[in-house]
Design a protein around this nucleic acid. Sequence first.
DNA 1: GGGGCGCTACTCGGATACTGTATGTCCGAGTCGCAGCGG
DNA 2: CCGCTGCGACTCGGACATACAGTATCCGAGTAGCGCCCC
Lengths: 158, 158
Amino acid sequence: MRLSTGVEWALHCCVSLCQSSEPVPAQRLAELHQTPPSYLAKQLQALSRAGIVQSTLGQVGGYSLMRPPQSISVLEIVRAIDGQGPMFRCSEIRQRGPLAVDPECCSSRCAVARLMDAAEEAWAGVLATTTVDDLAGRIDEDGEGAMGEVARWLSRNP
Amino acid sequence: MRLSTGVEWALHCCVSLCQSSEPVPAQRLAELHQTPPSYLAKQLQALSRAGIVQSTLGQVGGYSLMRPPQSISVLEIVRAIDGQGPMFRCSEIRQRGPLAVDPECCSSRCAVARLMDAAEEAWAGVLATTTVDDLAGRIDEDGEGAMGEVARWLSRNP
DNA sequence: GGGGCGCTACTCGGATACTGTATGTCCGAGTCGCAGCGG
DNA sequence: CCGCTGCGACTCGGACATACAGTATCCGAGTAGCGCCCC
């Protein structure tokens, strides 16, 4: 059970994007984070499909946040990259084998699945209550104005 | 970020095992849950390495719980099958690229990693506070004495 | 000089290879129980 | 009748294939800006 590498990149990209009012090309984001440009593009496309970032075509196009960073939760980004499905998928073992339970008795989920769901909900809760803006603030505190540098670097022409 | 299929099987196996005082062969557990015997054996071996179950060799050998089911947490089992590593692995993006932060300023973890760690801790907390015994109890409630049937089936000779 | 048009350069987007992990399978090493034999 | 010994069958354990998802890459479709030409 490992999170995709792209999740980390996507999070950093969103944090970086909220420092720029103008669209930033994927190429430039890849340069900033020193990641494979083509692969990062894939992640950004996923964010675009999820309605988190907006893509602009053309010569001065690129990606920009679709909504204010206070209204974008970390969970949204993780789900967009990693997929919507639950981490635990019950295969209904109880309905198989010599002691198979009658299917019509299985209206409620298996106890194992219920526990796993509860755990995942706790996990998701932490991520849902943190926004991109929160994250940017924390990174800025850690790095003593690191976000300002990012903003300057993004606005600077290559 | 998907949990291994083996996690589900391992959990059900542990629940079943606490219904039998005598060792149960992997073959028989596979029959009970209708799973690939060889693959299930792999999971049981992992549980054995983790010190959760005890393996007994010989003609009437098999697997049995090494400790009372009240002292085995679900988290232990999940970790044994799925691996100990954290689900989020920080690649220290902040130390790369044109705005690389000085490595000696990175004594504390990245803000993104801290958040992910917190989320995982919340997840693990739920699983750590639930034991195999709890799980068996819940399954028994759901299935109206399902555990008793399992105990009877396991003690019955094939 | 102003407006329209075409070109170019740049962007994203999806279709396409490759790699690593999860899944699934197999056969060998080891051990216990039982039967047979001897005392 | 009791104890020892050998055999056999059953067990686990790790080494070996396969399938799928994550990783990485590329090229085509589309658009906006800019320069040029015409009026």
